[in-house]
Nucleic acid binder design. Sequence first.
DNA 1: ATTGGGTAGGAAATCGTTTCCAAATGGGTC
DNA 2: GACCCATTTGGAAACGATTTCCTACCCAAT
Lengths: 344, 344
Amino acid sequence: MGRITIRDVAQAAGVSLGSASRALNGGKHVSARIARDVAAAAKQLGYEPDFLARSLRTRSSGMIGCLVSDVANPLYAGTVQAAEARLRDAGYLLVIANTANEPARERAAAAEFRGRRLDGVLVAPGSDANNETWRGLVAGGSPVVILDRDAPDGDGDDSPWPAVLVDHRGGAQAATRYLIGLGHRRIALLTPGARMRPGRERIAGFQAAFTEAGLDPAGAIVSTQESSMDFAHGDALALLGGSNRPTALIALGTRILAGALRAARDLNLSLPNDLSVLSVGDTDLAAVHAPAITALRWSLEDVGRAAAELLLQRLRGDGAGAATRALLPVDLVLRESCAAPAKT
Amino acid sequence: MGRITIRDVAQAAGVSLGSASRALNGGKHVSARIARDVAAAAKQLGYEPDFLARSLRTRSSGMIGCLVSDVANPLYAGTVQAAEARLRDAGYLLVIANTANEPARERAAAAEFRGRRLDGVLVAPGSDANNETWRGLVAGGSPVVILDRDAPDGDGDDSPWPAVLVDHRGGAQAATRYLIGLGHRRIALLTPGARMRPGRERIAGFQAAFTEAGLDPAGAIVSTQESSMDFAHGDALALLGGSNRPTALIALGTRILAGALRAARDLNLSLPNDLSVLSVGDTDLAAVHAPAITALRWSLEDVGRAAAELLLQRLRGDGAGAATRALLPVDLVLRESCAAPAKT
DNA sequence: ATTGGGTAGGAAATCGTTTCCAAATGGGTC
DNA sequence: GACCCATTTGGAAACGATTTCCTACCCAAT
């Protein structure tokens, strides 16, 4: 005796298969008596519908895919968690595919998602959307929401693709403005690069702040390094050790911040007097360091929730007139790591 | 014209449905000619099998569930990532359900997993396995692997359930032994509690080290607090501010470590001379802090991989004689935050 | 009393696969 | 050339639901 099917329920309730289905799904054309009997029979037998069978028939799997480059990254993990919560409430299951930045994995995942008939996809690839991956995803016909990346067409802010973006440019600009306001004229931005939207936007905001203040753009030093503590450490050592060193430093991400802080310590630079440090991304490290590091912060929960909301909206079909993208704000959390540069 | 089905492929290749299926699945009983024709037709039409239909028929969804209390927690995120990688290589998709420590969500997720016919489940609930959740999971009949938690029966280390455990007891014992060796006699353990296996094991190891050294167990101060920076901060202030304060402190987890470090700073205790600090769990914070914090470390990747391996083994059916559990080691990473206590 | 609109509910089709069964084919041996 | 056994192969039956179609029926209105 295997699993209890709806057929068993129907039989127990003494009605036909179709009626049982209608009764269980609260459909129309069901008398009160049958509804009652079927419900009773289902409960008594412990009936549990088979999602697979249902999905096959309805052509909707009730699952959402999440294509992300690195789930272990706290930035993504927080987002995934928030999205999962919202989607689960709406009855969807979230399946994740970690791509580790490998295009081959991205393609494979896209194909798999299609084959499994996932109803929608949240995507945050490691590099800006690989066109092939992209095509693979949209080919499935189900809605795709982009997380903080540019659409593949490269068509900036007026792309038709639903996306949840974070205002990294505004954040970086505000942060830089703040440092300039304190009197800094030579500021270094340590970044893992412009390969992805967040990096590009931050660099743009950084430079925009210099331009807007009418300052020599040569003071805006952009230093690109791999995102690793050791690389950042070496990089920061070189930058800060040279003559005419920057008086302030903006670090993108925990690892780079860690490397930069170590370098400052190695060089005996005391914060914030000898060097102002500002972190992009608010982490334990920034909050607890002595002195506490001033940081740019945005809400991971909001990103996840907004993405889920956007996707659900498409799934419900009222995607026509609705907003196609969300731009979330970035806040500057003032702490103790920034001050006016020492007089020279 | 909708999706390309295997029926279309069969027709195009001029063979029967069954033959096409056999050919595509590389089964036996297929002539070379048909295999070639079918493959060609499939390729030419761009056929992609429908996993849902297949799953319905084969009663296996090709998906593994992951029931975890908090994916955003780096500890879990790393594990999930490693497990996902291994499972994906084996052709499985990972679906995650975040339970936020709510038993109701756990139950709901267990039921959903059953309904969707997931082939297996990795589970790391927020509290030690809730019996009801557990029953819900095993009722599905698919294998369940426990991540660093005790089985619900409470039957410690000889439980029949496959599990991947981390040797927190041994780690804590080694760490405590190390501190005792440096000369410490009053050591505080700041822990979020004994609700889950890791906490229990660590407390046990901590106390075992005192016993084994023949020391007064009153020197082993276990202070239980919620895992939040603020709580830990207050707690540490109270502990370190009092008379006869501990000379060393073991912090369980990033947040507690952060709170403890802040408290030490507030009280003007310099590390490691006035206070030795040891972190359970190696994080950015521990590595970068000045002085760098000595920490217990274990491999999240190994946990995830081992769990996946254990599960795959069951799925392949050779679960009979095979090992049912893995115990992973914990290493002590020596840094600069521990020293002999100051002479009084 | 007949007709018409509407609801209830049963039978059957469908979703796209895999797998079972029986028939057919092929080759080798006596 | 007949017989036998082992492969191939086509046809059809699952898998477990939803959904369409269609008939039977009830009640009210003409």
